[in-house]
């Protein structure tokens, strides 16, 4: 999936220009809300994204079965077409797959997995990137050089290869005993490790600019320790671009997970994410059992689309040059 590479080089000229201005304060300005309300598409995207998150959170309430519990799957009920078709059966709104898994429930639970992997991956990448970026920018010198060299090395690889690598290393370390939960952790780490560089670079850039400003000097003067200065004073100033990166990364993380699962390194079939559902369902497309792949596909596309739209809007809204 080529998507995984975007953020690094998407806009070579834009990032440095953006870095370093007083983003966060401006972000909270009413300009943002104004531009939000002006764009109907963005409002729809925000609603849809919110809806997806709610669906994932309340998956167990909304679904007719727990698709991860084999005892609840009845093979008798396999391959039922959606409710509105001739062979549809209640309560399987979107039909069932070859194991008798209710597609609607599977989507809700799969959404949960995909979002957990995506959000945690982004949080992990963000934490790692921000920390390293702060350190590099603030400390400077050899430390900066080392961190940025590692970042350069990392940047030469597409995220998907890094994720595959991390996955492979994990498999070799844990042997063949990776259960579903540890697979999830591995995915989070794999995705986190492939996306941290951008955060680091952005934060470092901002820190380099901010640290020479008077207020930092003042803070140093009254004897605040460096970590406090960085976290409390410098970091908030970089939140705008970080938010943009995180939003776009979330979409990428979800799609990276799907691709990993296509290559056989994703979530297992017994605990499917949206990506795994699509991979499984893909095999039934020619057979005419389109609902097994179509609905998870729509869900994934809808989720990524709305997150991307949000990200786009956020970037434009936070970029004074485009306003």
């Amino acid at each position: 999936m080529s998507d995984a590479v975007v953020p690094h080089r998407a806009e070579p000229s834009a990032a440095p220009a953006r870095a370093g201005t007083g983003w966060f304060r401006r972000a909270l300005d009413s300009d943002i809300f104004y531009s939000f309300r002006r764009s109907k598409l963005t409002m729809v995207a925000a609603t849809v994204t919110l809806l997806f998150f709610l669906l994932a959170i309340f998956a167990s309430v909304l679904s007719v079965q727990n698709p991860f519990d084999p005892a609840q799957l009845q093979l008798m009920n396999s391959r039922i077409s959606p409710l509105w078709t001739a062979d549809g059966q209640s309560p399987f709104l979107l039909g069932t797959d070859e194991q008798g898994r209710d597609v609607f429930s599977a989507i809700l639970y799969g959404l949960r997995i995909s979002l957990v992997v995506g959000v945690l991956g982004v949080v992990f990448a963000g934490t790692l990137g921000i920390t390293l970026g702060l350190i590099a920018g603030y400390v400077g010198g050899a430390v900066d050089g080392l961190i940025m060299r590692i970042a350069d090395v990392q940047l030469t690889f597409p995220a998907i290869l890094i994720a595959l690598l991390v996955n492979g290393v994990a498999k070799s370390v844990f042997g063949n005993r990776l259960d579903a939960m540890s697979t999830l952790v591995v995915l989070v780490i794999a995705i986190g490790l492939s996306f941290w560089v951008q955060y680091a670079r952005t934060v470092r850039g901002s820190v380099m600019v901010e640290k020479n400003k008077d207020y930092v000097a003042a803070a140093q003067l009254i004897g605040l320790p460096a970590p406090i200065i960085m976290l409390r004073h410098v970091l908030p100033n970089t939140m705008g671009p970080i938010l943009v990166i995180a939003t776009i990364n979330l979409a990428l993380a979800v799609i990276t997970e799907a691709t990993l699962s296509f290559l056989g390194a994703g979530m297992p079939d017994t605990m499917p994410s949206l990506g795994t559902l699509i991979r499984i369902g893909n095999n039934y497309l020619f057979a005419g059992e389109w609902w097994i792949v179509a609905f998870p596909g729509f869900a994934l596309a809808g989720l990524i689309l709305s997150i991307n739209l949000l990200g786009d809007w956020l970037r434009d809204a936070l970029n004074p040059k485009l306003r």
Binding site: A251, A258, T259, G297, L300, A301, L305, N308
Partner: peptide, 11 residues
């Protein structure tokens, strides 16, 4: 273009 980046390549 948005749909292009919102669907996995294999699909």
């Amino acid at each position: 273009s948005l749909i292009g980046i919102s669907l996995p390549t294999f699909l």
